[in-house]
Write a protein that binds this DNA or RNA. Sequence first.
DNA 1: CCTTATCGATACGACAGCGTACCGGTACGG
DNA 2: CCGTACCGGTACGCTGTCGTATCGATAAGG
Lengths: 204, 204
Amino acid sequence: MTSQSADAVSSSRRSKITPEREQEFYDAVCEQLREHGYGSLTMEGVAARSRCSKSTLYRQWKTKPQLVAAALRAYSRTGLEDIDTGSLADDLRAVVRFAGERSGRDTQLMQALGHAVLQDEELRRALREAVVDPEIGVIEDMVRRAVERGEIPEDHPAAEFVSAQLLGVLRARPLLEGCDADTPYLMRFLEACVLPALGLARNT
Amino acid sequence: MTSQSADAVSSSRRSKITPEREQEFYDAVCEQLREHGYGSLTMEGVAARSRCSKSTLYRQWKTKPQLVAAALRAYSRTGLEDIDTGSLADDLRAVVRFAGERSGRDTQLMQALGHAVLQDEELRRALREAVVDPEIGVIEDMVRRAVERGEIPEDHPAAEFVSAQLLGVLRARPLLEGCDADTPYLMRFLEACVLPALGLARNT
DNA sequence: CCTTATCGATACGACAGCGTACCGGTACGG
DNA sequence: CCGTACCGGTACGCTGTCGTATCGATAAGG
């Protein structure tokens, strides 16, 4: 995961809040979020899960939405930005491989935030900045590069739907079949639908 | 449990709970659901919206989840079952035209239920039976008929994804672009992605 | 070694929502 | 014309959670 210095003050007792400790809070938030949803996420629950007291949470963050927003902002997804294989198909295959692994966690998180996002402005911004925009931006960049390379025409009608297709299927399968959209499923979808629609046959 | 006779005691004052009155309760539930989400749906709110008292609600339904489940079951979506144009492409175009109109309402409802569905078994069943299965079943039947007509091969790799694609994009666009997936958008998607992936070119 | 600041634990007030109980009014059935 | 049963309104108890305040303990710094 992410860390700066492996300073590891992992002795018996912690003193101040190290970045690692902070991340533990955020992890607890995400876990509670996935397990019980935003509405049933309680400060007591987060405190218990991260073995701290409510006081500590309220000392650092003013309210529950702010804590959740902070956790979302810290929910980093490094690993996608570096993909640049030189072909759109392979770029997307790499995305799918990556997304399949986090599929369960990410989808549960989105699902959990669901409607809370529509009520709290800060939460909505945090979710967009932390989860939506990065993944979508990366995919759109891939498409842009493919256009520049001449792989697909600039005005290809399917181009605008690539990210929506992937994100959509990612979230639709749990609803339809009750199981996560894992990598094999996403890969089949990519080869059977996304690439053909883009005019990128399998062996080209 | 629903209706007995269209007795229509639509005089000035209502005595017992007519089917129309019952539907008003359900409408109020759905509206509260869309507006505030499941967690913030209150019995007081439903009562106020449908101009009845909490007592009446609790006399008819034992608890809040049961009321919501009943409302979902009554959330009928007739209109899709009758589509059978003789070609898969036209069938899907009809679906898209229909889905685009209800897009906003349906999506908000799904979004609102989000995580509550994972906690309450009855709610999950109600949602599947009332919203998911009907739409998906209809689409899968369309694909089946197309296979029987020979429009597409039985083992076409894109066939399994048709419903997931449509449902997915329906729910992905609000998240990505912040606006509903209306009919024009869905139609563009259908023509640009779904049909090409199925090997059904535009003018065939 | 002593001061200080922060952490963990807990108790507390405030508030909102669920579900119940009661009470008066009003339409139906005989 | 009268009893019955149901509806609407409201007050109430209960629970759970937010956010605050207080207190002892413990690690950092001089």
